[in-house]
Design a protein around this nucleic acid. Sequence first.
DNA 1: TGTCAATTGTCAGAGGCTGTCATTAGCCTC
DNA 2: GAGGCTAATGACAGCCTCTGACAATTGACA
Lengths: 208, 208
Amino acid sequence: METLRERKKQRTREALLRTALELFTTQGYDDTTVDDIADAVDVSQRTFFRYFAGKEEAALALQEMTVAHFLEAVRARPPHEAPMEALRQAVLEGWDTLHDVIDAVAPVEVFLRMYQVVESTPVLLAAHLRRSMEIEEAIARILAEREGVDIDADPRPRLAVAVFGGVMRLTERQWSTGEDFSLDAMRALTVSHLEQVGPALSESWRTR
Amino acid sequence: METLRERKKQRTREALLRTALELFTTQGYDDTTVDDIADAVDVSQRTFFRYFAGKEEAALALQEMTVAHFLEAVRARPPHEAPMEALRQAVLEGWDTLHDVIDAVAPVEVFLRMYQVVESTPVLLAAHLRRSMEIEEAIARILAEREGVDIDADPRPRLAVAVFGGVMRLTERQWSTGEDFSLDAMRALTVSHLEQVGPALSESWRTR
DNA sequence: TGTCAATTGTCAGAGGCTGTCATTAGCCTC
DNA sequence: GAGGCTAATGACAGCCTCTGACAATTGACA
């Protein structure tokens, strides 16, 4: 944060983001116009669009901050771990260290409430899912490198990530619509779901 | 198709849809405005929005037509099949009988090209993914009923569908970006991917 | 044929987003 | 520290998606 100019820019961006999140979580995403946000920060609407590609980008900014963090966690997993176990541990680690990434911008509570906003706002949920797809591709590449296989010749990296991603998205949904909306609950649900993937894929469920 | 009024409505809707698909597949989704479509059909823009909730709905209309068809295929699977196998057969059956559903509105080629448009247009891809999520919930309910388990007490139906859905979305993506963009290729890729899910989830990939 | 209801067109307007251009304000050099 | 340079902002104007409201049209039906 060198010059005054850069500090001002930083402050404007943070003010815009904080205000946007505040409005999104209190009056909802659709009921918040870009003008509302810009007016509250006392800048022109045009300025908002110079900092964010669109309303969506502001709404998903917090989640985006956790992405790099999670990818790094995957990369840092010890090589002897099996692929799925590495993903599992990386996710849990990501939740456990969420504060380190989020706190500088917003309290974790805002992050959690935004999660619900995303899940309950069709256009945001759609954007979130598309972004998740991109992230899955990135993870598949990390996994392939980790295991020393060619990602274009061997389908297993992308398949493993697709399965993992499917389970994680289900977990997100269940979590955000359930009653216990805490990080602990998310952690527990993740563990539980990953444990039951095996049984769910087994031949028959009736021979339980 | 009783009255003249209803026939006219039907014709207007079909003209709008056909024109929309034509324009989307030739000049792209983003470069096609609703006015373009309405003008080509010689109706007002307002009329377009009376037939379709938005541009998206027109773009995804063909895919939507196959959904009910696929759900029916799942329901029709013999009860002795294991859940995952039932889903697998239903999907393959869906592809094999695509003509029965699509041909009345558009040639299969248009369906295939729209698939590529959807996959390469961010906003459409996002909408498609969100819709896929809703469909997964519907399938999970069918599976739960089939197997006689409580969908809210037993996580296995949703988990199985989440895994299956993850693999199918990967398959869609690989297919739409590959060189062989035929129904046969889709069929083959589906079979191949589902065969390799097991190995991809196994402990280590290096002991191959 | 005349009444009723459904379909459509027209108009106005909100909201997201972009290009353009003038203005402002920080930065840097002499 | 005055002046030139450049980055950031504001102010418009405009396009596109989508919606509400109202009037005009057109099919349905007695």
